[in-house]
Structure formats: structure tokens, C-alpha cells
Design a protein around this nucleic acid. Structure first.
Lengths: 159, 159
DNA sequence: ATATCCTGGATATCTACTATCCGGGATATG
DNA sequence: CATATCCCGGATAGTAGATATCCAGGATAT
């Protein structure tokens, strides 16, 4: 899994600490964790396309969450960055080779594929069961001053 | 996830259809699914190093399962090929940047990392819950003649 | 002795991830 | 209206890992 996922998750978490209408420029969001601005911007755009974040152009613009942290799961973010494809993709090698037979076995599922998909569904369900709000609450419980610190550094207080 | 995993799973399944002492040369195992012999051999060697398969050198040699299919889980095969590392690896970007603070926060777990690991554990458990024997039984139930066909083609009958 | 087969290393190719840059468009501010 | 700020999309490189091949050496059955 790409490092981009970690970037996106931390950025979403930081945005979750802010007010719903506090937009943070990509450059500031990147500087907060010393990430490359241009590349992080690509990931933020992916979050926008997925409907997780929203972008505001112009001065005092930036990125904010598109919906409340309670309605954003870890799966949402992972899928937005990595794509919806399964990590294990069945290439149907069972149908190649001398013993494949010419019968129309094509339409029946591969047993190994079914088994691997079952495991990936368990992974997806575990990701979908955890929301950004829950993560934020855990962080706030363990490090009470971190949300405050993030907000103070990220938000450009109005002139 | 690499295609190698699919290759390894199908090869292990084919070996599970055979007798415990029927060794199949890598070239024949590869030809069965039209896979590149040399590269498949690398994966078979990984299975040997993991203790899943055993290799027999010399004429009438080849590869066989090192233990019974009941004792081989899908997780065993996946870990043997892909390695034991987590797909999501926390780079601790939270500790970089201006707001990280110089306090000794290093030793406490990253909340996002914990959440992602929880999901991966669910995936691993789902893989560990399925054995090669169960997969083989399902295949045999749905395609009763496939194990026979695999054995007839793979095993070089004595002289 | 010989043919068969695995083992390990070296090498090459290709894809996806990481990263950067730039022109264009949108918007708040004065 | 002019300008500074900021997002958007495309083009472009570099790099690491996955895919793939080849060969010399070792082990073993016949």
C-alpha cells in the first residue's frame, strides 16, 4: 500500500480537528507533516473527486472536509486514494494450460478467488467500521492538546 | 498484491490433489497453467523456505507439499510469497513538522496505525481460517473430475 | 557415468509510485 | 477592476519493486 494513504488519512484527521468551514491551503497542510506539497495536492484532489473533501479556490481558500467526520470511514479514504480494485486480482490462470478443457467453465467462479475475496471483504468491513470521528475522539482522549495545537497551526485566523 | 500469489496458491492446490509423495518438476507445474518456468521456480523456492513445500532433486524429483493440506492455510502461502510485512506501514509522519513537539511522544502508538492494523488483522484472520484442504474439497465438490485430471497430467506415472 | 532437477546469483525489463513543474481558472480583497 | 492567492489538470522524470530470463553448481535416481 502506498504512502499516499497515510498522508491522506492524517490530512483528513487534521481537517477533522478544524471547524467545518475552515479551509486549509495544500501548502500549509503539507508543511504540517513535512510532505511534498505538489504530490500531496494530487491526493487531496483525489479526496475531492471522491466527495470526501471540498476545495475552495482563491485567497483564504484551501481544503476542508466535504461532510462530517462521523460520515467518513477509513475505507472511504483508502478507496479514494488506492482505487476500488481488489488487491488480489484473479487472472484465471486455471483456465490456461493443457488440462483446462474446452468446456464452458468460464462462467463459474474460481474457488481461490472466492476465498481471497472473502478475506478482502473482512478487511474492507473492518475499515468501514471505523470513522474519522472515532479516530479523532481517540486522539483527543490520549493527547488532549493535539487537536488544539493542530488547529492553531493550520488555521489562518482571520486577519 | 503480486500475481505470484495466485500462482503459488494454484500450485499448492494442484499439489494438494496429488499423493503426499508425488513430486512434480517445476517445469511441469508451470506448463499446467502456462506460467514462466524460471520465475515460478523462484516462488516455489519461497514456499520451500517457508516450510510449505519440499523439493526433491534429481530424476523423478520436483516439488511436493511439506505437510498435509489441512495444515496449510491461505495466510501461510500469502506470507511465504509476499512477506510478513504489513501492507500499511506507518512512517510516523505525525512526528514530523512544526507541531510535533519535542516531547517523548515517540513511544506511544499512532492511532491511525492502530486502526489500519486492526483491519489488516481481520484480513489475516480470514486468510488463516481457510485451509488448502477446504479449498480442495470445495473444488472437488464443484468439479469432481478436476482433481483426477490434474493428477493424471501432473504425475509422471512410474516408467 | 549420465541425465534430470533443484539452488542461488546475476541481469534485464516494465509498471506503479513518488515527485516536480507549469499554464489556466476561480475567487476574495482593496 | 486589478491583483494576489489558491486550486486544477496535464506533462514529465526518477525510483523501487514486480516480472522474467539465464547460467553455473550441487544433488540424486538409474
Amino acid at each position: 500500500m502506498g504512502e499516499r494513504v497515510e498522508w491522506a488519512l492524517h490530512c483528513c484527521l487534521n481537517l477533522a480537528f478544524l471547524g467545518p468551514d475552515d479551509a486549509v491551503p495544500a501548502a500549509r497542510l503539507a508543511a504540517f507533516h513535512e510532505l511534498p506539497t505538489a504530490y500531496l495536492t494530487k491526493q487531496l484532489q483525489a479526496l475531492v473527486r471522491a466527495g470526501i473533501a471540498a476545495s475552495v479556490p482563491g485567497p483564504r481558500g484551501g481544503f476542508r472536509l466535504a461532510r462530517s467526520p462521523e460520515q467518513i470511514t477509513l475505507l472511504d479514504v483508502v478507496v479514494a486514494i488506492e482505487g476500488p480494485e481488489y488487491a488480489f486480482r484473479c487472472e484465471e490462470i486455471r483456465q490456461r494450460g493443457p488440462a483446462s478443457g474446452s468446456s464452458g467453465r468460464t462462467q463459474v467462479a474460481c474457488t481461490i478467488d472466492v476465498a481471497m475475496r472473502k478475506a478482502e471483504l473482512a478487511w474492507r468491513q473492518a475499515l468501514a467500521a471505523q470513522t474519522l470521528a472515532e479516530i479523532a475522539a481517540t486522539v483527543e482522549h490520549r493527547y488532549p492538546n493535539m487537536p488544539v495545537r493542530a488547529r492553531d497551526w493550520l488555521v489562518v485566523t482571520g486577519s
